[in-house]
Write a protein that binds this DNA or RNA. Structure first.
Lengths: 226, 226
DNA sequence: CGTTGCATTGAAATCCCTCAAGCGAGGTGG
DNA sequence: CCACCTCGCTTGAGGGATTTCAATGCAACG
């Protein structure tokens, strides 16, 4: 399975991204210093063992962070959607890889430059820490899912999370495949598919197509997500 | 099951802790500004929903960070040993709880004070970010375990991690119960116990007592840990 | 219209969980 | 000093949720 990679710098600035709290130093900084780069579907943004040194922000598309076992088993630790920052690793080599789930534009900024700027600009540094600490909280929350939730609870949690993050309340557009969802939820693709079917059978969701989920019973799904 | 809590401020400074890289501003700062507090076994250091505002560093003992589901299912996201910092949450209320695994002394420092100091002292801010980013990397690594590893792989990974962290190479002293290990590894106590027995049967470890593990075949365990 | 990639469905197997009993060290009191 | 209790740990038997293996469906595309 060959990953097709495109790291083509597009001229001009990255497409603008929602900025709900007015001026956000970290994001401003990244927009000013960073360059928008386009990646094809399944394109590798960085790989395990590669040197670190950049901070990434999704302009459009979606990104997955993966960790592989030697025999090919894969765990996706998170999906990143437009506006999300990723690549927050303090080591000098990546211990995880990042790939574009669909064709995406990512704003790439020198991490060293941001860190140096943060040493002068306290507010920037504080925001960088905030973003990282929030990622940490999400990670801990996901551990609860992986360690203790059933398949239907996992899928419901995932759907409610995607619903919240994509802003839409009725229909959720999933950019990722069943395989990606399985590797994110610690299940097999078959179990994910069966669980989708079961949720549809129970009337909690409708599936006009495999990547489009209509939420029918929010409260039941929220309950399942626990 | 009533948790016995002791939050008794002991006079004087915290017991000194290994400081391998000479002066470490973050830790120095915490030693200067922080107060050592003693907790009994199973004592709650902070609970879910409680306000945040402190940074913690283990002086002696061991700490677990937990997340509970409404029906009592529990996931332990990490154990913290002497020298480790925890409590890195950016939200204003804790989404996780912290408890002492055994009687412990924790140095508690105002998070706000550290953050304010970090806005002036770039090096301190950078270290705070580094610690947080390292926690994040560990969390991602643990997701791989929870999502994709078998019971014996999980236990081997845990033992190799404890071996590395406790510094000892031959015998590992486990401060936590089988129950804690189970909730950390996403297994049941019975499976943990059986897997310990199996590793002993296979000659990879010896168990002089349930909390004391003698490592017999490091490379086999490392292989299992993958 | 065949190919290709992804998704769904079915049947059998497996690993881990659940339920239940037994063990052993440590503490307490008679 | 020993019986007895408690608590944590171990072990066994059976069951169940998820995986594995295999086949089919289906939409996009050349």
């Amino acid at each position: 399975m060959l990953m097709q990679v495109t790291k083509q710098i597009t001229p001009g600035r990255a497409p603008s991204v929602a900025r709900p709290f007015g001026s956000v130093p970290l994001f401003d900084q990244m927009d000013v210093m960073g360059a928008p780069i386009r990646y094809d579907r399944n394109g590798e943004i960085y790989g395990e063992e590669e040197p670190t040194g950049y901070l990434y922000r999704v302009s459009s598309g979606a990104v997955r962070i993966c960790r592989l076992l030697s025999d090919g088993r894969r765990q996706i630790s998170g999906f990143y959607l437009p506006g999300d920052v990723f690549g927050l690793e303090a080591d000098d080599t990546h211990r995880f890889s990042a790939e574009a789930v669909v064709a995406s534009v990512i704003t790439v900024t020198s991490l060293g430059a941001v860190l140096r700027q943060a040493e002068r600009d306290g507010e920037l540094g504080r925001q960088l820490w905030n973003v990282t600490a929030n990622h940490l909280a999400r990670a801990h929350e996901h551990m609860l899912l992986l360690g203790r939730k059933s398949a239907s609870e996992r899928l419901a949690t995932f759907l409610m999370d995607m619903r919240r993050r994509s802003g839409t309340s009725g229909t959720i557009e999933l950019p990722m495949s069943r395989n990606d969802i399985a590797d994110y939820l610690g299940l097999t693709i078959e179990t994910v598919s069966r669980t989708f079917s079961q949720l549809e059978l129970d009337g909690l969701i409708a599936l006009p197509s495999s990547r489009r989920v209509v939420v029918c019973d929010v409260s039941a799904l929220e309950d399942l997500a626990a």
